[in-house]
């Protein structure tokens, strides 16, 4: 009984960790895409010097 309670609590924590991981992956990919890859003129012009400095392929 105790063991079952612990194991269900553990898997809940584990799934929360995975969910948080995917949420952060989405946030990170969105920010990185906007700063480094978006071909919109405004995004490109604003991030231009940073794209070159970070080493994103640009132009």
């Amino acid at each position: 009984m105790t063991a079952r309670t612990i194991s269900s609590a553990t898997s809940l924590k584990g799934s929360k960790r995975i969910a948080a991981g995917f949420a952060l992956l989405f946030i990170g990919a969105t920010l990185t895409f906007a700063a480094g890859f978006s071909s919109m003129a405004v995004a490109h012009n604003t991030a231009h010097d940073t794209r070159h400095a970070i080493g994103f392929p640009c132009h």
Binding site: R17, I18, A20, G21, F22, L24, L25, I27, G28, A29, T30, L31, T32, F33, A34, A35, G36
Partner: peptide, 13 residues
């Protein structure tokens, strides 16, 4: 922040 989020995501996953 984007790189940090991806790094944190790798850690959590």
């Amino acid at each position: 922040a984007g790189f940090a989020a991806i790094l944190a995501a790798v850690s959590l996953l």
